[in-house]
Amino acid sequence: MATIGLRKARTIIRKALEKAREMELKPLSVVVLDAGGHVIAFEREDGASPGRFDIARGKAYGAVMTGMPGSALRDRAEAQAYFVNALNGLWDGKMVPVPGGILVRDGRGNVIGAVGVTGDTSENDAIAGMAGVEAAGLTGEA
């Protein structure tokens, strides 16, 4: 089974932050999780609030644990808030169901992890994160 190694995780973060600077976004925080929801790597830009780690991890955690990107989780939360709230209860409130949680798949379509980006609008967070995933040669779903 393919995994996201530390080298690729660092590439994802570096390229996501480069995209954010190109887009002139607010300071971002980016986390990369493995397929089990464990942190591989994290960076918080100067000026990003300290609480951003938990938000980034929550976005990525929701994506990897459900197999759905943040945009789909947001849509599901709007349509079935009771279900998403129940999941979040099961996972001790670790899920943040909004864009910026990017599901990462290998070439065969297997989930190998997730990326969580936070600091600007959720939509801009997702754009920056996807740039990082693609730069690492992986497939992302935002």
Score class of each variant (00 low, 15 high):
P99W: 02
T118K: 05
K19L: 05
V96G: 00
H38L: 08
A9F: 05
G132H: 04
V30R: 08
A126C: 13
A48C: 13
W91H: 03
R76Y: 02
I102K: 07
V64K: 03
A35V: 14
Y82C: 04
A16E: 04
A63C: 02
L87Y: 06
L33Q: 04
R108E: 12
A114F: 00
A126M: 12
G119Y: 06
G62A: 02
R57L: 07
N124F: 02
R44W: 09
A48H: 06
V64N: 02
T11E: 11
V96C: 00
Q80V: 02
S122Q: 06
A131N: 09
T139Q: 09
K8F: 08
A16M: 07
V117R: 03
E24T: 15
R21W: 05
D46P: 12
E22Q: 13
T11Q: 09
V96M: 04
L90K: 04
V96S: 03
G93C: 09
R44P: 15
N124I: 02
R10N: 01
D75C: 09
V64T: 08
R108D: 12
L33N: 07
E123P: 12
N85W: 04
G101M: 05
L138E: 10
S122F: 11
K8Q: 15
P97E: 06
R105V: 09
T118W: 00
A20Y: 05
A41I: 11
F42D: 10
G36R: 09
D34Q: 03
I112P: 01
I102D: 13
L17Y: 00
I13N: 14
R44G: 15
S71I: 14
G51C: 08
S49D: 01
A48S: 15
A136R: 08
A60I: 12
A60W: 10
A81Y: 09
Y82P: 02
V133E: 04
L17Q: 05
R44Q: 07
R76M: 10
L17R: 02
A72G: 06
A60M: 01
R57G: 04
R7Q: 10
A60S: 00
P27V: 13
E43F: 11
L25K: 00
A2F: 00
K59Y: 04
R14S: 14
A9M: 10
F42Y: 14
L73P: 11
E24G: 12
D106A: 15
V64G: 03
E18D: 13
R76E: 04
T66N: 07
R52E: 00
G51R: 08
V111R: 05
D106C: 14
P69A: 00
A72C: 03
E43I: 15
I40T: 09
A135S: 13
E78G: 03
A77E: 01
A86G: 11
N124Q: 10
V64S: 03
A60G: 00
A9H: 08
G140Q: 03
Y61G: 02
A48N: 13
A16R: 05
A128N: 02
A136P: 12
A126T: 06
V39E: 07
G109A: 01
V133L: 04
V133C: 09
G140Y: 01
I12F: 05
S49W: 03
K19Y: 10
E134N: 09
V115S: 07
V31A: 15
M95L: 13
N88P: 05
E18A: 15
E78L: 01
T66V: 09
I102S: 15
G47K: 12
L87P: 04
R10S: 02
A63T: 06
I13Q: 14
G100C: 00
